[in-house]
Amino acid sequence: MIIQRPTGSEHSLDAALSIHDLTVAYHRKPVLWDVDLDVPEGSLVGIVGPNGAGKSTLIKAAMDLVPKASGRVMIYGQPYRKQRRLVGYVPQRESVDWEFPVSALDVVAMGLYGRIGWCLPVTRKYRDMALAAMERVGIADLAHRQINQLSGGQQQRVFLARALAQDARVYFMDEPFAAVDAATEKAIVQLLRELRAKGRTALVVHHDLQTVAEYFDRVILLNTRLVAHGPTTQVFTSRNLHETYGGRLNLLDEAAEAIGRQKVTA
């Protein structure tokens, strides 16, 4: 049976993620306005927009971390609440205190706590699983370091390994490329492609317009409201970028350059 939605918007039922008419407001000021989109399984999606456009808020609202004023979020056709186990989260690196007294392995193991269950200890089996996740992002040798002894890029990879250990189907990543070294950037791109090859989906808040076309199949252009969403080749146009970023000159130059690069590679 097909349920007619009041808005009349069409959503495919097999989408990895579908967001229905999502609105979020802080102190009565809207941060996201009526965002509506479907993300097909196995895509790498860049979320792009100026500061304050609501990029982080979009993924936080999708995971119920900030209250929604209205709207629904579905993961594989079911409400997020029922599908938490399918969702992996890589928060912004600055969101935690890296002086916290734990080792890198301890942090990665946190991705397995849901599977371990209440009050039970992290046994050898789970430590090995965490270590395997660290191996995949090339930091297994740092497992026993205290986390403040890691570089920014290594800390970022610890967060990625934690999300990998969750073995999720849909990943939300909040600026994983922010202030990381070239090796880490390469490792993240490699990892994203591995995930895609396995049919996993990743939504990534991204700042660097230069690399959008290279890293992502699809792009969400956001500035409080959804400016455009779709395959990068169709949506990542200078017109859409103008609309997303408004009249900010230096950004527009950057955007124009990015478009140029995209045309060269295409």
């Binding site: 995971m63 938490r84 989260y89 969101s95 946190m110 209440w118 009050c119 992290v122 969750q166």
Partner: peptide, 22 residues
Amino acid sequence: GLFRKELALLCFDADFAASQGW
């Protein structure tokens, strides 16, 4: 002692804990 793992997760990264349904 019983809840040490859950309390540690809460103290380190409450948002991540919430995203996992804790």
